[in-house]
């Protein structure tokens, strides 16, 4: 088995009762990448991640984790932040991190040293001896995140890591994720907030209705939609509808239409010749958000 892929899965499926929560998902996460799993609520993201980690067994399909067919065999090389956060409330922050490291095979002495370092770096040095129940929810979440990286995993799986964090802590988390990537870890995370995915992901998969709807880079995702052209003539009187593409729509003084396949130049040529002029022209690339809404929306229309 080569090391090209940190995680692979094909045809993963899971039924809960009669409902197929995950219905044949394929995923391949390249080693060293930051990989996002995007999807609306209830799309099957968490179930997919739990199957990849071996917390639950899939009904169908194959998976491999860091080259192991049984994900459990690789468990010491994996860090995981579950969607439902949970720490022992009576534990001190440092002990919680040491404990999580120990579960993954890190010896306690090393764990303690690293826990203090990590807490210091995350700006939580003062809370090392505080019990978890005394910490705010966001702080506890950061502590749990530190606990999932203390053993320096090769693969870090984060389920909705940004939810529940304020913007400052979201920034910290992004920095931490990039830091882990720079250390050489592969990061797989799920989110339904596009902004984080857009900034962080090397590749992403969009899951909706238990199926994978898209796989590729952020650029590819945005490429699934055509760019929108917004044009404002200098002399509106001279713009005749036949000069513009048939699907152009007038919005006040502006015209808006999708970028034609042959490019914008022929249209501009016709407009200039007709003397309409150009007061303003913008080509808007679609955002990941729009691409996501369209990809997911198509699925909902189909359903």
């Amino acid at each position: 088995m080569d090391n090209q892929w940190a995680v692979t899965a094909s045809g993963l499926a899971k039924r809960f009762g009669d409902r197929r929560v995950v219905d044949g998902v394929d995923i391949a996460v390249p080693t060293g990448a930051v990989y996002g799993v995007l999807g609306p609520n209830g799309a099957g993201k968490t179930t997919t991640l739990r199957m990849l980690l071996g917390i639950i067994e899939p009904d169908e399909g194959q998976r491999s984790l860091l080259g192991h067919a049984h994900p459990r065999d690789a468990s010491d090389l994996v860090g995981y932040l579950p969607e439902e956060r949970g720490l022992y409330p009576a534990m001190k922050a440092r002990d919680a991190i040491v404990f999580m490291g120990a579960l993954r095979g890190l010896d306690r002495a090393t764990g303690r040293v690293r826990a203090d370092e990590l807490l210091e770096q995350a700006g939580l040095g003062h809370a090392a001896d505080s019990k978890i129940r005394k910490l705010s929810k966001g702080m506890a979440q950061l502590v749990q995140l530190l606990g999932s990286v203390v053993h320096r995993p090769k693969l870090l799986v984060l389920d909705e890591p940004f939810s529940g964090l304020d913007p400052v802590n979201q920034e910290r988390l992004e920095a931490l994720i990039l830091g882990e990537r720079d250390r050489g870890a592969t990061i797989l995370f799920s989110t339904h907030v596009m902004a984080h995915a857009e900034r962080l992901c090397d590749r992403l998969a969009i899951i909706a209705g238990g199926r994978r709807r898209f796989e590729g880079t952020v650029h590819d995702a945005r490429g699934t939609l055509t760019a929108q052209v917004r044009y404002r003539p200098r002399d509106p009187e001279r713009v005749l509808p036949e000069l513009l593409p048939a699907d152009a729509v007038r919005e006040g003084a502006d015209w808006r239409f999708p970028m034609p396949e042959q490019g914008i130049e022929p249209i501009l040529g016709r407009l200039l010749t007709a003397g309409a002029g150009i007061l303003n022209l913008s080509i808007e690339r679609p955002s990941l958000h729009e691409a996501f809404v369209r990809i997911v929306g198509e699925q909902e229309m189909a359903a």
Partner: peptide, 17 residues
């Protein structure tokens, strides 16, 4: 019951059998 109520079970179940 402790792990179930404070959700630590997910952390444990992911890390160890």
């Amino acid at each position: 019951a402790e792990e179930r109520s404070n959700k630590v079970i997910e952390v444990l179940a992911a890390a160890v059998p």
